[in-house]
Simulated assay, not measured.
Amino acid sequence: MNQMNIANVDLNLLKAFEALHDESSASRAALRLGVTQSAMSAALRRLRDLYGDQLFVRTGRGLAPTLRANQLKPVVSEALNKCRQSLAMVDPNASHYEGRSVTVGLSDDFEIAYGRRLIEEIALRAPKLRLIFRQTHSQIVAHALMERSIDLAITAGGFAERTLSRQVLGEGGYLCLVDPSSLADGQHEIDLDEFVQREHILVSSGGFIGITDEGLASVGLSRQVCASTTHFAALPYLLKGSQAVATIPAHAAQSIAALTGLTLLPCPLTLPRYPIELGWRTSTQLDPVVLKVREAIVACFA
């Protein structure tokens, strides 16, 4: 790599780098920044010279970042966000949210239950800010925050790392979802015997055992899981027309039932409640945009 002097570097190249990394496509990156595709291709050539690396390689699915590009991304984005933050300090009334995005890590049960509400809160508090929802869960959330692939996260814990901060948003419980055609007329609950006799759909990020299996084992029972899925959004399609039951967090069960016509039932098994927490890198404490999103999340859960 040639000796570099920041005085000789066009800092707009950093915006091009960020757009290329986010969009994985020169044409989409050009569209995002409002420049021609040839200007974006020229920017990529200059970036490659600047960093002495290919940065992005063409694949069948667009441009894939190299290891060096992935190492640069959080540093470049943080530098650009600091610049945006500095402009907001001198003109607090400007629309300084345009062009900024905040990535919220959450599992799709929280996205289903709170996503729309959060979009509306952000429209009021930070107009033109873009939210990016990214799948995560408590086992992987700390790593995702520390490697900067997400800015904030809503999970049932997982924020024990020293460099992370957290705030309790509330606690959750469980409800059951079934197709109403599988119930007798006027039936509003199922007992433990019927619960065990029915087939079950398990929602899990990868395991074969869920909280329901642990609860059943504690009373000497087990269940038959006919299928498992990683996404709550699939449940309406997996439950409709079947005798199966899914036992899932209450916030997701209520939202799914409201939109799909599935029936909510109390769980006949006593299951432990769990904390719902908001986590973030302590180093982002002073970023006013991340703070705005944190405030909006807290308001949604209030």
Rank of each mutant, 00 (worst) to 15 (best):
A126N: 09
L192Q: 08
M4N: 07
E111Y: 13
I211Q: 00
S222R: 09
A79Y: 11
C267W: 07
D151I: 06
A217E: 02
V9I: 15
F232L: 12
L278Q: 00
D109Y: 04
L177S: 00
M1V: 10
V245P: 02
F56K: 04
A258W: 03
S138Q: 11
P180S: 10
D185S: 10
L177Q: 00
L265K: 09
I112C: 04
T263L: 06
A253V: 10
L129Q: 00
L31G: 09
G60K: 08
C300E: 00
P236M: 07
C176M: 12
I297F: 11
E295L: 13
G173C: 06
T263E: 13
V76Y: 06
D287V: 08
Q187K: 06
V290Y: 01
L278Y: 12
M4C: 14
W280P: 02
D179N: 03
G261L: 08
E121Q: 15
A69Y: 09
S138G: 00
T36L: 02
V245W: 04
S25I: 03
S24H: 14
P266E: 08
Q54T: 09
G157N: 03
P65F: 07
F159H: 15
A253H: 08
T66C: 01
G158I: 11
K73W: 12
Q54K: 11
P236W: 03
V245I: 15
R28Q: 11
V75K: 13
G99A: 11
Q187N: 03
M89P: 01
F159I: 02
T247A: 11
L80G: 13
L13F: 04
